[in-house]
């Protein structure tokens, strides 16, 4: 029950506040961070104006391979797609299709 409650509060995050009035990085917000859990994690990718001085040199990304590219397609994790081999999951989105039951009243 607690688990599901947590889920719900996560969904109820105030996105407007998170986006316009917090210092969390877009990645943290998209991953489901809340106001307040970002404290020490922020600035990992350098926002320039904060704790530049104290950042250990190792934290600065130098390798080309790690660079976050400005790309539209998101990298697909092949493992994440493996879940779609599951029959139950395949059936679970049937309601989104016109042939699915429960709400053929749309047309």
């Amino acid at each position: 029950a607690l688990e599901s409650f947590k889920q719900n509060t996560k969904r109820r995050r105030d996105l407007v506040k998170l986006i316009y009035a917090s210092d969390l990085t877009p990645e943290q917000i998209a991953a489901g961070a809340e106001l307040g859990d970002g404290g020490d994690a922020k600035g990992a990718h350098g926002d320039g104006d904060e704790d530049d001085f104290f950042r250990p040199k190792g934290a600065v990304k130098t390798s080309l391979a790690e660079e976050v590219l400005d790309q539209t397609k998101e990298d697909v994790a092949v493992d994440a797609l493996a879940k779609w081999e599951d029959e139950a999951l395949l059936d679970s989105i049937r309601h989104l299709f016109i042939t699915g039951s429960g709400g053929g009243d749309e047309d």
Binding site: R11, R12, L15, V16, I19, Y20, T25, P26, E27, I29, A30, T72, E74
Partner: peptide, 26 residues
């Protein structure tokens, strides 16, 4: 659907350039 990280940064940038904030609700 859920916003991508790019969209979240874009919303911030849009506010900088145009002064427009979006209202976002479930």
């Amino acid at each position: 659907g859920e916003l991508s990280p790019r969209s979240i940064q874009l919303l911030r940038d849009i506010r900088d350039f145009f002064g427009t904030s979006f209202k976002i609700a479930p």
